[in-house]
Amino acid sequence: MDIATVVGVLAGFALIIGAILSGGSLKIFVNVPSLLIVVGGMLCSVLIHFSLGQFLAIFAVIKNAFFHKAHSPVILIQQMVNFAAINRRDGALALEQEMRKVDDPFLVKGLQALVDGQEEDDIRALMGMETEYMQARHGDGKKILEFMGASAPAFGMVGTLIGLVQMLQNMSSPDDIGQGMATALLTTFYGALLANLVFIPMAGKLGQYSKSETLAMEMITEGVCAIVRGDSPTVVREKMQAFVSASKRADVKVTI
């Protein structure tokens, strides 16, 4: 679980609720019609803009913003250095034993291609295609959240217009004027809150996750290809250290 995302969302809502309670009752900020206009309208627009499959994947996309298993570049480099040492000492077939200890499907696929004796160009093409499709999937999820972040305030404005029309048509009744104004203002509030505290930040977080995962997959690709070429563990380490900052490079050791 990404602690920063959880803390950010909870702290943001706590801050808003605290500000409301400091000046009055939370009850006056609860308006079901306003919420239906914003949330319902936003979901309908998503359903129109995207396919049914993409719409049904909304919850999975939001889940990915909270739960993400990050790869450690230093650990990845150390793994590839160790695999290079095993390959040089015992041959490619010895890596089959090591594959059982790996829980990354992408790394397993690369090692399996290596063990099968595929050429470097074929391995690079295979793993490059996998990376591109991963980026496309993540890009679709990010686009959904960005669209939700854009449509929520728009439907907040729609609710505001509805509330103003209701208010202007009932100027003779003070109660109806108050209800119309509540709908008008609260829909704008709901739309702005959901967009700027939930959907847009989550889209940005998914973008960061995608960059991190792309980097990890590129590191794995380069490491596997270096092993295929028969590079020594030291050479593999030196090449892959280009992916990390200088302060972390000393953590990677060559073990043969």
Rank of each mutant, 00 (worst) to 15 (best):
V198P: 02
P73G: 12
H68W: 06
V236G: 06
S72L: 09
A65R: 12
V235N: 14
V61H: 02
I144S: 01
K69V: 08
H138P: 02
G178Y: 00
A150S: 14
V228H: 00
I227Y: 05
E120K: 15
S72M: 10
G191D: 13
N82R: 03
V236I: 03
A154F: 06
V9Q: 13
K27M: 05
Y133Q: 05
I144G: 01
G180C: 04
N64I: 04
M171L: 13
N82P: 00
G204Q: 10
A242L: 14
V81D: 04
T183D: 07
Q169E: 15
G180T: 11
G24F: 06
A216Y: 02
G8N: 14
D104M: 07
V235K: 09
G91D: 09
I16D: 01
L168G: 11
M217D: 04
S34G: 09
F55K: 01
Q118P: 02
G149C: 13
M202F: 12
E238N: 13
G163Q: 06
M42H: 08
F106K: 06
S172H: 13
G110N: 15
L56E: 09
L10R: 01
R89C: 00
N196C: 02
I162T: 11
G117F: 02
G53Y: 01
A94I: 07
V46E: 11
I75M: 10
G180N: 07
F106W: 05
K211C: 05
N170P: 11
S232A: 12
I75N: 14
L194D: 08
N31V: 06
V198D: 04
Y133C: 03
V108T: 11
V38F: 11
T160G: 11
L111G: 09
R100I: 06
F155L: 08
G139A: 11
L197H: 00
I16Y: 03
F13E: 01
E132H: 13
R89S: 09
S172V: 01
R100Y: 09
M1W: 13
K248D: 15
L36T: 13
G204R: 03
K239F: 04
A242H: 11
S232N: 15
D104R: 04
V244C: 04
A60P: 05
L10G: 00
P105D: 00
S172A: 15
Q166I: 05
E222Q: 11
V165Y: 02
K143L: 07
Q79H: 15
E120L: 04
P73D: 03
L10K: 03
E222T: 10
H49M: 07
F243E: 00
F147A: 07
M80Y: 10
A192K: 12
